[in-house]
């Protein structure tokens, strides 16, 4: 019986999966083996070793990657009913409403295109001005569109799962955007999927600056999906309700200049050093299904001088 099983396992092409199933289902080695006290001891020691080892080193990431190949299908099938129902709704939409939507999208695209034309001119101008100031800066990012899986990993953390992983070159600590603003950062990249921490997670902080006057501060997640907290601004700081907060680019994770949030409420606390300031994220954190994972361009755009202007213009166009 045991030999048959061993042969099956060896010759089965999917033997790693098979092996895990065998362990889950029944472990023939221990069927009449050590007492449950011994087994508990082994299990507890193994768990604690894993807990400690993961904190000390990153060696266990490989184990997690391998196991995530098994758990990813479970996340997919959990996502499937909702995804499928949305697709069905899309496919039975009337021709009229589709035409209307199409027309609207076309108009939007036209507007964005014309804005982009202006943006290109502005970009050139900006590069020239920076050259005058002798400051080099980074511009231009690559993005990858990833689709959100509608799963909820842990009740108190704002961590979502998307369907692109290290197979597409995603790595930890990449910025994630949607069409409206900064969403969060890649928390853990696995082979087939990756986990993204939203900016509203209580453990997340993002360096921001006020678009109006460049005042820099840090926006901390509150644990509520529609709220960020700015805990480090003094009572007399130059900030008003309705101010746009953009990413400041400090810290090196988020590229500079993307909208993050709008200041919603300012409560002055004269008896305390800092004011209580709340902001609403610009990104549609609980509605966007398509997210953009951002790659920063590694090399900063070089300074432009009179002699090499032509060459640099070619470079900037790339």
């Amino acid at each position: 019986m045991i030999r048959d099983r061993t042969i099956q396992i060896i010759f089965c092409p999917l033997w790693p999966t098979r092996f895990i199933f065998e362990v889950i289902v029944i472990n023939p080695l221990f069927a009449t083996g050590p007492s449950i006290n011994t087994r508990l001891l082994v299990a507890v020691v193994a768990s604690i070793a894993l807990l400690v080892a993961e904190r000390k080193s990153s060696q266990l990431d490989k184990l997690r990657s391998v196991l995530s190949m098994i758990t990813y299908p479970i996340q997919s099938i959990t996502d499937w009913p909702l995804h499928h129902s949305k697709e069905t709704v899309e496919s039975i939409k009337s021709l009229y409403s589709l035409k209307e939507e199409n027309e609207q999208l076309r108009q939007e695209q036209l507007i964005y295109k014309s804005q982009l034309l202006k943006y290109e001119a502005l970009e050139k101008e900006n590069i020239r001005l920076r050259a005058l100031l002798e400051k080099s800066f980074k511009l231009g990012e690559q993005v990858l569109v990833a689709e959100l899986l509608s799963v909820n990993l842990a009740p108190f953390e704002h961590i979502v799962v998307v369907d692109k992983g290290t197979r597409f070159g995603v790595h930890a600590q990449q910025a994630v955007l949607d069409a409206y603003g900064v969403v969060g950062q890649v928390y853990r990249a696995l082979p087939l999927n990756s986990e993204i921490m939203l900016i509203t997670d209580p453990g997340h902080a993002i360096p921001v600056q006020i678009n109006r006057n460049g005042l820099r501060t840090i926006a901390v997640g509150s644990g509520r999906i529609n709220r960020l907290i700015l805990p480090y601004l003094a009572n007399n700081a130059d900030i008003e309700e309705g101010d746009l907060l953009i990413s400041s680019g400090l810290g090196g994770i988020f590229p500079q200049g993307y909208p993050v949030a709008v200041v919603e409420k300012i409560i002055l606390q004269p008896n305390k050093p800092f004011a209580e300031i709340y902001a609403t994220p610009k990104a549609q954190l609980n509605r966007s299904r398509e997210l953009l994972i951002v790659w920063k361009s590694e090399a900063p755009i070089p300074l432009e001088t009179q002699e090499t202007e032509q060459a640099d213009e070619n470079h900037a166009e790339e």
Binding site: A46, S47, I48, A49, L50, L51, E54, R55, L60, L63, R64, L67, S68, I70, T71, I74, Q75, L153, A154, I159, Y187, R188, E195
Partner: peptide, 9 residues
């Protein structure tokens, strides 16, 4: 692995 906790918890 499924829920992104520390391995072993």
């Amino acid at each position: 692995v499924l829920t992104g906790r520390m391995l072993g918890l």
